[in-house]
Write a protein that binds this DNA or RNA. Structure first.
Length: 276
DNA sequence: AGTGTATCCTGCAGGC
DNA sequence: TGCCTGCAGGATACAC
């Protein structure tokens, strides 16, 4: 579910509510989401105070007092829900970890498929972890020229390239499909075959799609919810993702689905020609 | 280096 | 109605 726009939405909401709050209780009902024992996890976080909320690629980065970071990966179905003390909210289904906070507020991590992770890092550990991820697509430091240069390093299909978090961080299957459609590039084209002009178009398309999706609070196909429990509003704006057989919005050619890299790729065979 | 395959899990839609 | 299959926003490990 959660690609950059969904994570950015959650992060934006948490950033207005979490900082300053202290963790008073930690309940782990699904230990397999952690990379350490629940006992250790709990004792490290009890009494810590949230300082800041950030994002790196698809990961939510919660900085805490005591020089530690709690990094949350949502996997496919993860949800990080904040219930303020005023909302007499019920615990969500598939609750995996819950943090009781200062004034009676609660932060729940829920995850039906449990592909997500909650991991603690020291700032130093996180720095080297973060360095393994590619550049942020919305960062102005990533220029069209540098984007073309890193594309040129790999002959793998550009869709697979976009999904590889070591190349660029934050893009998943939905926004890869939408950006490639917007840039009129076939998903199976080798990354290194893109011309400088195509690389520029692709970077622009990625940024347009991501920013528009952030404005809509992300895409909810089924499970994704914002930290406030809302669904994202971008689904009606999807042009090709999940649209196999539908007429292309630009030319009416039926949208095609092919599978490679173990994932479905959706594209318009006319607008996104294989060659050139 | 790159690709296909399997794995971790569960829920749901669609076909029969 | 009910069972079975396929598919799903992610990520990683493995063999070839």
């Amino acid at each position: 579910m959660p690609e950059l726009p969904e994570v950015e939405t959650v992060v934006g909401q948490l950033a207005t509510s979490l900082p300053g709050l202290e963790i008073r209780g930690v309940a782990v009902t699904r230990p397999d989401l952690l990379r350490e024992s629940p006992r250790r996890f709990r004792s490290a976080l009890l009494g810590a105070r949230f300082l800041g909320v950030g994002r790196r690629g698809k990961k939510i980065v919660l900085s805490l007092s005591g020089e530690q970071l709690l990094v949350v990966s949502l996997g496919m179905t993860g949800q990080l829900l904040f219930l303020p003390s005023t909302a007499e909210g019920e615990a969500p289904p598939f609750r995996a970890v819950s943090f009781t906070l200062e004034p009676g507020a609660v932060l729940h991590y829920a995850d039906a498929r449990r592909f997500g992770r909650l991991q603690r890092f020291t700032p130093r550990e996180w720095e080297s972890e973060s360095a393994r991820l590619g550049p942020e697509p919305l960062d102005r430091a990533l220029t069209a020229g540098s984007f073309h240069r890193i594309l040129a390093l790999s002959r793998s299909p550009v869709r697979s390239w976009l999904l590889d978090q070591r190349r660029v961080a934050g893009i998943g299957n939905i926004y890869a499909a939408e950006a490639l459609f917007k840039a009129r590039i076939h998903p199976a084209r080798p990354a290194s075959s893109l011309t400088p002009g195509e690389a520029r178009q692709l970077l622009t398309a990625i940024r347009d799609v991501l920013r528009e999706a952030i404005r809509a609070k992300g895409t909810t196909l089924r499970d994704y919810r914002t930290a406030a429990g809302e669904s994202g509003g971008f689904s009606p704006s999807l042009r090709v993702y999940g649209k196999e057989g539908n007429p292309c919005v630009a030319c009416n050619t039926p949208v095609k689905r092919i599978v490679f890299g173990n994932r479905s790729a959706f594209f318009c065979p006319h607008c996104q020609a294989e060659d050139q």
